[in-house]
Design a protein around this nucleic acid. Structure first.
Lengths: 207, 207, 207, 207
DNA sequence: CATGAATGAGAGTTCATTCAT
DNA sequence: AATGAATGAACTCTCATTCAT
């Protein structure tokens, strides 16, 4: 296994593709989908323009691949948390922490993605073809569904009010996003997670 | 003479500029700032390309004008609410209702605007010039500031916990937005406002 | 005669047209033919856009009219000089003075005109239709022809060498133009005329 | 291998960029800066619109590049002449010949350039940005400065009158230009150079 | 006559994508 | 597989001209 990695060929093959993805991550995050240009990506990736189209069919699919590759480890961790045997209230805080970590790293890219998947109705209203958009929607169904599952467990455990878990999960999700985008989250992610979960769970009205 | 004005006159007097704004509203909302083209706007407004540039200096200022004209009545109502003499807890619910109404109408446009004002640092990271972005930011300072003021009043009235009112206001704002974007809000805006305010104030954990 | 002038109608009629010509003079001189816009002309003339097209068939004819109106008094004076009974050498200096005065006033406009009449061959190579261009060329034939006539008189009077009078006239003309454009001419137009005529007549080589 | 390069290689290597410059030369010369369109240039260059912008940042810089590339060999020859050890009077005639040759080839383009660098004061009075205009002015400072230097040498050698060399150089320059523009120069450039220098040096008045 | 809102042809420029090397 | 020169469709914006009032 080692000798394969050390052979320059395989090393470089993975590298070119990865360099492009890394560069695309930076440029898409900074500029958004439309203002990001392939020229800027290849400049940052230090590669040729044609190379991009060897690995990715077009700009759109490059973006999609980026999203999926960045998401995979986060999704894995989240699913693991859902499956864990723990009180739901504690899982909520841990989930918030996972989301905060993820968005602290990838928030800008996700903001771009979320902006692009709007306009589902019209054929060419978005840069994404009809089939692609559903794949992005699946991401929300999976991750926010995980949050909802935790809340559902809490209801079963009678530590959480009997509410609409999907709406609540989306609400929690949106608060996390806003905290990140407004740069309210500093180095103390754990503390922020605690505070966010606390307000979410117990409200801000005086008891 | 009056009835003549009302038949064709009033129709035509307000027409061109308003038609363009109406068309721009639809196209910007559906396509976002960059994918919206002047050609599509004029097709919808049933006017010539030059006419747009008679009324608006460029695409950006058309967008800005749109935002400000749509926002004005909402802002007025919000400020009136803040100034009213009422318990803060009730004001919160009324404010949520105002926001829900506003975003049910203009949510897509605001999503576009919010996407464009990101990337404040870089020069060309957004379609908006540096000076303009601050004007959009002011909108947030004003409206979310109003929410924060209501919460602050609640703290003074000892009906709301002593929390970071700005963060909390942003949190409430983001939840409202998400409810709208996820189409969780139907015809019963009042009911939704009640539910949202309830969860925000009292949390979802069982007491 | 006076009462006609004072009647507002006739006064204003002449005025509108003249205001437009005055404004056109300023704008064409400053911006050149293409960069001059009708909008800027009407702003300076304080009139409506349609009014321009009431008096002039289009931008091109406005320009042409301007040239001809500005030229008339100069041409008259020049023709008078040619016809005068005077030694040719003195006429040369006086003609130089006339040209200097004229171009000190209208040099920019003439530069613009001279630039526009190029590209005689191609149909649409210039902004001017084929027929129009010849009219401009006539101006040169008339005015430089006058200079040539003076030189020809000088040859007859044996005070000027037997040279190609047309070429020499164009040469003198070009020197005058250059003096004006390079702003080598100050308030002392007479002195400058003397110097220019002196070098033209006697050369700059040491005798 | 070499002959292959010479058949297609050398043709194609220099091709696109040079074709564009060649086409731009023709179109700018014929139409002037503003009436010249990129569409016409690419039609003549038989290339795509984007290709122009691969080689030149914009229309203005294409024009500037054209001017500089056309000027380089002429300037080199002129500077060599100035530095040569020869009587100034002979240098004058040789310089006139150089200028005649140059303007016989590039006169139309230079006329366009000269027209564009006017209106130095106003911001948008010309198609050229403020900083660029100075670069064009430098061309005059260099080339007419070279003429003036020759005249200055003549004064030192006591073969030329003590006159304002800069004004005189501009005068000579303008005469050359006019000869070319009026198509007074035919195939016998040497003869024309002799005549022009003769009149410039010794005047046209009878001794 | 005087007006100026409306117009659209046409300008310069950008950028995702292709393909010969 | 890697490249980047070549491309042209699509974009925003300008401005001379018209015409209903």
């Amino acid at each position: 296994m080692n000798y394969i990695r050390e052979s320059t060929g395989s090393e470089d093959l993975r590298t070119k593709r990865q360099h492009i993805l890394d560069a695309a991550y930076v440029v898409f995050s900074r500029k958004g989908y439309h203002r990001a240009t392939v020229d800027e990506i290849i400049a940052l990736a230090d590669t040729g323009k044609g190379t991009v189209y060897n690995y990715f069919v077009n700009k759109e699919q490059l973006f999609y691949t980026l999203i999926m590759e960045k998401s995979a480890p986060f999704e894995a961790a989240l699913m693991q948390l859902v499956a864990a045997k723990e009180p739901a209230l504690e899982k909520v805080e841990k989930a918030v922490k996972l989301f905060l970590h993820f968005f602290m790293e990838n928030g800008d890219l996700w903001r771009v993605m979320m902006h692009e998947i709007r306009g589902l109705s019209c054929e060419k209203a978005s840069g994404l073809k009809e089939g692609q958009k559903e794949k992005y929607q699946d991401w929300f169904n999976r991750t926010i569904g995980a949050l909802a599952q935790i809340l559902q467990d809490g209801i079963a455990q009678e530590t959480i009010r009997d509410c609409d878990v999907t709406k609540s999960a989306y609400g929690l999700f949106s608060v996390i996003l806003m905290m990140v985008f407004q740069k309210f989250v500093g180095d103390d992610i754990s503390g922020m997670a605690h505070m966010t979960a606390d307000i979410f769970l117990y409200g801000i009205a005086k008891k």
